[in-house]
Design a protein around this nucleic acid. Structure first.
Lengths: 146, 146
DNA sequence: GATGAAACTCTGCCGCC
DNA sequence: GGCGGCAGAGTTTCATC
C-alpha cells in the first residue's frame, strides 16, 4: 500500500515513463536508488503497481480503425459470451456497465472490412451498436495523482 | 517502422513488460543486447513505440468508481470544451466518435459523489449519459501482434 | 526504512565483420 | 545489420545505523 508522498512521487514518475531507472527517480525525489527499489518492490507486491506496459501505435502496425461497440448480451448467451471473449484479439477493452448485461467494448481493427467481420461475429450474442473512433483526444492518461 | 518478425517479438515482450532489459529480451529471441537496443531505438524514433507506462490500481489509490460518459457536445461549445478537457483530471480516456460532436469519455473517480460532481461540470456542454463500470473484463490488452 | 559499499547486470558506444 | 568488448551507469543485496 501507499505510505507517503514519496510513494506518490515514485508512482508519478513510473506512470509517465515506466523505464525510468531507480537511480534517476531517486535523484529527482531525493532518495537513494536502493530505497526507491525497495519501495517499488513493495508497491508491486501490494498490487498498487499492476503492470509495466508499452504503448504501441496501432496505426503503424496496420490497425487503422478503432471503434466502441455497445451491446446488451442476451441473458441466455451471457456466460457463453464471457467464455468466448478471449477469442477476440481485436478487443482491447471490455467493460461490463450498468444496464441489463450491458457491455462497452473497444476494438482495434485493420480496416472497415475487418470491423464488419468483428461485428458479424458479435451479432449472435446481442445487438451491437457501433461508433467508430475518429480521434483519441485523451488516451489512458489517468491523472489520478496530481 | 517495423522491419521483420524480430521487431514484432521485441514489441511483444515490451508490451507485456516494459521494464524488461534489452539483454533479457535478446536472450529470449536470440539477439545480442546491443542489437535489441538499436532496434528499440529505431522503433521509438519512428513512433511505433509511443510510451512506456505503468498501470496503477486505481482502487488502491482511493478511486473506486469508473464510468463511461457518452455525450454530444453542443456545437457552439465544441471548441471551448476541447480546450477545457485538460482541466478534468478525472478523464482517463476521451474519444471523438462518429455522430454529431459525439464523445465517449471514461472517467475514474473516488465515489459516486465525485462522479456526480464530474457530471455536473460536464452538463453545461451537452447532455451526458452515464454508464457506471461494474467490472473491467478486458483492460488495455491489445493483442494486435498475435 | 534509509544508507552506502560490493557484486553483479545492463546500456551505449565502438570498431569490426 | 549484427556482434563482442569495454566503460560507465544501474540494480540488487546486505550489513549498519
Amino acid at each position: 500500500m501507499i505510505k507517503d508522498k514519496l510513494d506518490l512521487k515514485i508512482i508519478k514518475f513510473l506512470k509517465e515513463n515506466s523505464r525510468a531507472s531507480y537511480a534517476h527517480i531517486g535523484r529527482e525525489i531525493g532518495l537513494s536508488a536502493s530505497a526507491v527499489g525497495e519501495r517499488v518492490q513493495r508497491l508491486e507486491d501490494t498490487g498498487v503497481i499492476k503492470k509495466y506496459v508499452t504503448i504501441i501505435d496501432a496505426k503503424k502496425m496496420g490497425f487503422s480503425v478503432s471503434a466502441y461497440i455497445l451491446m446488451s448480451i442476451d441473458s441466455k448467451h451471457f456466460h457463453h459470451f464471457m467464455d468466448t471473449l478471449e477469442s477476440f484479439p481485436e478487443i482491447e477493452q471490455c467493460s461490463r456497465v450498468t444496464g441489463e448485461n450491458c457491455l462497452i467494448i473497444k476494438v482495434v481493427v485493420k480496416d472497415s472490412d475487418h470491423l464488419q467481420e468483428v461485428i458479424d461475429r458479435l451479432t449472435p450474442y446481442g445487438n451491437p451498436s457501433t461508433q467508430v473512433i475518429l480521434s483519441d483526444i485523451i488516451a489512458n492518461s489517468s491523472k489520478i495523482i496530481d
